[in-house]
Amino acid sequence: MKWGLGLIAATTVGMLAAFVPMQEASAQSILEKVRQRGFVNCGASQGVPGLSRPNERGEWLGFDSDVCRAVAVAVFGDRTKARFVPLNAAQRLPAIQTGEIDVLSRTTTWTFSRDMAVRFVATTIYDNDALLVRRSANIRTANDLNGLTVCLQGGGSLTEQAIDEMEEEHTGVKMRRVYFDSTIQARDAYFAGRCDTYVTDGLAAWGQRASTARNPEEHQVFYVGHSTEPNGLAIPRGDDKWFDIVRYTVNVLIWAEDEGITQANVDEMLRTTKKSEVKRVLGGEPGWGRIIGLDDKWAYNIIKQLGNYGEIWERNLGQGSPLKAERKFNRLYKNGGLMFPVPFN
């Protein structure tokens, strides 16, 4: 009996002890945790061509994956120091909140209610919601969608709401829904013929059409919902240090495109530039990295290893990819888009 009591007491003390370091740990910045761990945990999608999808060797390819790699380059100077965790729509926010991932880079729309739960850092892509639909269905206006069956990913995604919005705007239009756990299952069900159409993000729709459809010409992309949505990077709340790193990683990408700095010419730019801002950001001025808690060469490394925003776009989504998607709102401000860098002064 004496032993039994001792055991209970020891267990209780042990449990209490287990909780004390947890509270201290939450005061530590994610940056330190990432450094100790040796890699960045990136929240990825379940496989969207052009945005984030593993190839047959298990390497994640795509725009969203490269943006998260840029964060890994900023911290470690090495693009391979990023690990990817595939998440569905319902898992992604809790994964940030619980610290399972450090950065969410996965077609997630920045909204008020989500920003109250996690912290959005920067918009990386402006996208629309779109339906992939067979040309034989002959869809010209939203009214033609009435009575069709749509496959979609459930779990409260905004693409799901795009259908609701479309029905509200066009009275009399009513679509029948079939919900799936992942956007991939919904896509497969569409291609099998279970549904007349499949709803997803605009770029993802182009990606699936280009890479999954047996004959892309049989399918068309039809935009629904009136909104252009900001898709961005999100991190846990209450960590300014990590926020700085992620925000200015994205800014470097846009800034470099604006300055005309590319993967190919970054060394030459560093050597020959007369602009003090370019020289400083690329690490030509000692102490520049200390302000943000990184190596002096962090910005240089990002461009050298991954290229600027435009290069990442063209490689994954644009003319260098099977998608050949238009940049539209994602062009630089000076070309009529919405991408505008914060000055590095």
């Binding site: 319902a90 926010l93 209610s113 109250m116 459930g154 409260g156 919900y179 799936f180 299952q185």
Partner: peptide
């Protein structure tokens, strides 16, 4: 059930959690 596209209690709660962030 959700693996084959039928919405059960678990799925509904998953959606509620995602929309309200009350995991």
């Amino acid at each position: 059930a959700i693996a084959v596209g039928y919405q059960d209690f678990m799925t509904v709660m998953g959606t509620v959690i995602n929309r309200t962030s009350h995991a």
